[in-house]
């Protein structure tokens, strides 16, 4: 674990990449970085500083899909969140699951529910949504009002057939 304050070290390592550093309280730190730099900062925190990856949060805001990587420095009682923005209408960001295997499933989840494309993800397939959920409908975007997309009886039967054939091979 880092002897120096990890926030200090992140600041020194990426002096021109940090857009904003907000120490909300001694235990909660938010760092905003550019979309292309997020992966490097995440790698530095996880591999060099030994932070524990908690989870990612993605939320739909007016500016685009905001993505937060939450890290925990357990011995220092600090939760550091790396914040970045994937602009609409085609949100896209580099995957971190090659660095952190534990991030594979949450990236698949975010891909399902908010439509963020994680570049170079090893297996970016359906995880949360059903196999018969239509493409391009993202339930956790604010525009989605919570209805299940309507489908006629015949369409439903076709979908079932397709899925069955996928599983039986």
């Amino acid at each position: 674990m880092a002897e120096l304050n990890p926030i200090q070290r992140v600041k020194e390592k990426f002096p021109d990449k940090i857009a904003e550093l907000w120490e909300r309280s001694p235990k909660r730190i938010y760092i905003t970085v550019g979309r292309e730099d997020a992966k490097d900062v995440v790698r530095y925190l996880f591999e060099d500083l030994g932070a524990r990856f908690i989870i990612m949060t993605a939320l739909d805001t007016r500016q685009g899909i905001e993505i937060l990587y939450h890290f925990s420095f357990d011995t220092l009682s600090k939760i550091v969140s790396i914040r970045t923005l994937a602009p609409m209408p085609f949100p896209e960001i580099e995957t971190v699951s090659l660095i952190i295997p534990g991030a594979e499933y949450i990236e698949r989840e975010i891909h399902d529910i908010l439509g963020v494309n994680f570049r170079n993800h090893p297996n970016l397939t359906r995880f949360i949504l059903g196999d018969d959920w239509p493409e391009g409908v993202y339930p956790y975007r604010k525009e989605h009002k919570g209805q299940y997309p309507y489908r006629t009886e015949e369409e439903q039967e076709l979908f079932r057939k397709e899925i069955r054939s996928k599983w039986e091979k």
């Binding site: 995880f127 949360i128 949504l129 059903g130 339930p139 956790y140 919570g146």
Partner: peptide
């Protein structure tokens, strides 16, 4: 594979 019973609690 999960979420066969996704209740959408976050939403």
């Amino acid at each position: 594979r999960t979420s066969y019973n996704h209740r959408g609690i976050e939403k």
